[in-house]
Amino acid sequence: MIEGIGVTDFIVVATIMFFVGVYGFIVRKNLITILMSVELILNSVNINFVAFNKYLYPDLLQGYMISLFVIGIAAAEAAVAIAIILNVYRKLQGIDVEHVDTMKY
């Protein structure tokens, strides 16, 4: 616990980070920047879990554990995503998300 800092402050930081990630996810066209936005979103969620763990249930490790798992999953997701991005780059000579639309009607 930090003197004078409540759980709300953490949530504010995390929420801002979350919506910045959302903004990036929707606005940026480069697949890698989109991936980075996703990392931002995941990270903000982690901060939330940790803060709730620390402030609300300090005797347990639930949020802590979830954060660990999220980091693991994020790593796996990043690996697969980058593999896909490389493949898309090879196929389309570019990684603009707007060109990845073969699944449309």
Binding site: Y64, L68, I71, A78, I82, L86
Partner: peptide
């Protein structure tokens, strides 16, 4: 947790992303 964050995220994911960037742009 902080150590995991540093090694996996800062160390792993970001390096991966940098490599992807270098491979594609």
């Amino acid at each position: 947790l902080a150590a995991v964050q540093l090694t996996v995220y800062s160390g792993g994911v970001v390096v991966l992303i940098v490599f992807a960037v270098l491979l594609t742009a």
